[in-house]
């Protein structure tokens, strides 16, 4: 696939706080192709949300600031674009939905008002046309009684319905890319599946690329073509969903997959990766996962691993995948017996 519509290279988004500079996103590169569903996975605090907000330039500032890298939408570097151009792109070409459907809609305006607003900002249409298109969008995202819901306020709808409305708003202008920041996290499981199905449907019908941010590998398996695993502000592994889930190479990814509850291992204690995500700070030495990694060795403490290419657009940030160390890796695997 050569039709890249979003290409981020070495993005650095830092937060300037009283405790010093925090590199929340530290050199992240990723690519989204037309019509593709890409997942970004990682624990809380690994920088996935900040990455997505950086694309929209919605990082709260101060304290956040994009200090390096490029974000190319088609051939245009968004970090050099004018404020007006960014406004034109937001909601029109790249749109976004958020984790909390309960608080993401303005409580004081009707659903219809908020939907029309999205349309009227970008398209030259009158109120009646906007109304018609809004009802169409509500029907598209599977809201029953769309005409009535237009006059409802957000508090009159359930969480799942509100997230559907958010999706309707974000899809109203037929964007090229939809960034979904944990869109199903706040919803219960049956609603989660419906929302994912809806996103899959929109992806197929409208050929909208989706960048899905989640901590749930189940969600990834459900709809993503490709997965990017993030840890402490960096990409640690990248590949197709199938490869990542079947054959994870980075110890962190392995840990994540082992932490998924399995039905046939009912009696065993659920695995969890020991420790927590370290708080990113400037000048961190060595591999960021070293303190929680069962394969950590001397080199991991003195040197930061780069993203090793494994061919076929597969990448992993672990010394075990450095060609000279492949042997060490296989030894280690043999020792732990996994």
């Amino acid at each position: 696939m050569s039709d890249e519509i979003l290409k981020i290279t070495s993005l650095q988004t830092h937060f300037f706080t009283d405790q010093g500079e925090i590199p929340a996103v530290d050199g992240v590169s990723l690519t989204v192709h037309k019509g593709e569903v890409v997942g970004i996975v990682g624990e809380s605090g690994c920088g996935k949300s900040v990455t997505s907000l950086s694309i929209m330039q919605l990082v709260p500032s101060p304290p956040g600031k994009i200090v390096g890298g490029t974000i190319h939408y088609k051939s245009e570097n968004l970090l050099n674009a004018s404020k007006k151009r960014i406004k034109d792109i937001r909601g029109n070409e790249i749109s976004m939905i958020f984790q909390e459907p309960m608080t993401s809609l303005d409580p004081l305006f009707t659903i219809g008002n908020q939907l029309r607003e999205a349309l009227q900002i970008h398209k030259k249409i009158n109120k009646k046309q906007a109304n018609q298109k809004s009802i169409e969008m509500l029907k598209l995202v599977g809201i029953p009684r769309a005409e009535e819901v237009m006059n409802d306020y957000p508090h009159q709808l359930s969480g799942g319905m509100r997230q559907r409305v958010m999706i309707a708003i974000s899809m109203a202008c037929d964007p090229e890319i939809l960034i979904a920041d944990e869109p199903t996290t706040a919803l219960d499981v049956t609603i989660q599946a419906q929302i994912l199905d809806l996103m899959k449907k929109l992806n197929h019908e409208k050929d909208t690329a989706i960048l899905l941010i989640t901590h749930d590998l189940g969600v990834v398996a459900e709809i993503c073509d490709r997965v990017i695993v993030m840890y402490a502000g960096q990409v640690v592994e990248e590949g197709t969903t199938r490869e990542i889930l079947k054959n994870p190479t980075h110890p962190y990814t392995k840990g994540l997959i082992r932490s998924i509850p399995k039905l046939h291992e009912k009696d065993q204690k659920l695995y969890s990766i020991p420790g927590t995500v370290p708080k990113p700070k400037m000048g961190m030495l060595g591999c960021r996962f070293k303190d929680r990694c069962e394969f950590a060795h001397d080199r991991c403490f003195s040197e930061a691993p780069e993203l090793f290419s494994l061919g076929n657009n597969r990448y992993s940030r672990c010394f075990l995948l450095d060609d000279t160390e492949r042997k060490v890796a296989s030894d280690a695997e043999a020792n732990t017996g996994s």
């Binding site: 406004k87 937001r90 958020f98 993401s104 809609l105 305006f109 900002i121």
Partner: peptide, 27 residues
Amino acid sequence: MRSDYIRTVQAKGSGQFLIIYKHALKN
């Protein structure tokens, strides 16, 4: 101005004036 729905309005691509005098002021 720090609330989620203001971020949603920003993500829609609306200008500062609409954000402040329509959504933020009313809330």
